[in-house]
Measured scan of single mutants.
Amino acid sequence: MGFKLLSKLLVYLTASIMAIASPLAFSVDSSGEYPTVSEIPVGEVRLYQIADGVWSHIATQSFDGAVYPSNGLIVRDGDELLLIDTAWGAKNTAALLAEIEKQIGLPVTRAVSTHFHDDRVGGVDVLRAAGVATYASPSTRRLAEVEGNEIPTHSLEGLSSSGDAVRFGPVELFYPGAAHSTDNLIVYVPSASVLYGGCAIYELSRTSAGNVADADLAEWPTSIERIQQHYPEAQFVIPGHGLPGGLDLLKHTTNVVKAHTNRSVVE
């Protein structure tokens, strides 16, 4: 069995187990497998329904001669939608809004960016022009300005110390501490036991640490421990890039980060 097929099978099995364990909360999309990078042309966006009122959005972007996937989250909030992270750029984010209108038909009224990198804030200006209120932590807003990236308009308070959590509509926002970046936030959907790890969490097929220019490698494993301790009931975990899975993604990420750190020390 090929690795790609095995990865998709694991996603399907995880979703099936969740649907059985929580039949009222989960209505997993039966329309197909989780979209992969090879299936999404740059400039297009796919939506994948995880649970009743919960979707991931998947886009792709060219970077350094390669094409990478990027995940975000959409959560229903009454007759409105909360968006977590842009679709990595203005063109993708405009396509995301169009796809949401086509498939869901509810307005996106608020959006949260989970850290300051372009795959999370690139497209904020498109959201703002569409009347979406954009939010991020003060740290993310400051770092985005320093980096020359787009800056969300509103500040999220109460997320300055490791372990801080605040309720934001249908989700809980959690600051686990520094990891992929010093400002990275985690998003949890309690009604569906869905954990969105953003770039602080890796997919299972990833074996290298990737972009760690703004990471705190020493603190990252401790931050992941905080996530595990705060959300032990999480059933569906979405990484910032690639295929979702279960809580095993947290341990896998820790292993990859520690291996990278150990290699760096040896070198």
Rank of each mutant, 00 (worst) to 15 (best):
A200R: 02
Y68G: 05
L10R: 09
I50M: 08
G242V: 05
K4S: 10
Y68C: 04
G242L: 04
D214F: 05
E225I: 08
L24A: 10
R141C: 06
H154F: 14
P190H: 07
L13Y: 15
V42I: 06
E157F: 11
P190M: 08
S7N: 08
R46H: 09
P35T: 13
E147Q: 11
D64N: 10
T254G: 09
P170D: 06
N262D: 12
G53N: 11
D125V: 07
Y196C: 04
P35A: 15
D125N: 10
E101K: 13
A90L: 07
T261V: 14
G198L: 04
H241G: 00
P176W: 01
G2I: 05
L5S: 13
H241N: 03
L173G: 03
R141A: 08
Y202G: 05
A15V: 07
H117Q: 04
V54A: 06
S191L: 09
T109P: 05
G197H: 01
S155V: 14
H180Y: 06
A15E: 04
N184I: 04
L6M: 12
H115N: 05
M18Y: 14
W55K: 00
G89H: 00
G89R: 03
M1R: 03
Q103W: 12
D85I: 00
M1N: 03
A51H: 08
S264H: 14
F63N: 15
S208G: 10
L106W: 08
A94L: 14
V132P: 00
Y68Q: 09
H180N: 03
K91C: 05
E99M: 13
R110W: 12
L47I: 11
V265C: 04
P221A: 09
S70P: 04
P138N: 08
I104H: 04
N71G: 03
D79T: 10
D216S: 09
P35Y: 10
D125F: 06
L247G: 11
L243M: 14
K258A: 11
G245C: 04
A234H: 02
I104N: 04
A15I: 14
K91P: 14
S70Y: 02
E99K: 13
I17D: 05
L143F: 13
F26W: 15
T14A: 07
A165K: 15
D125L: 07
I227L: 09
A25L: 11
R167I: 13
L96H: 03
H115R: 03
G78K: 08
N92K: 04
I58A: 07
T86F: 00
A136Y: 02
R142W: 10
L243N: 15
V212G: 10
P221R: 08
Y34V: 15
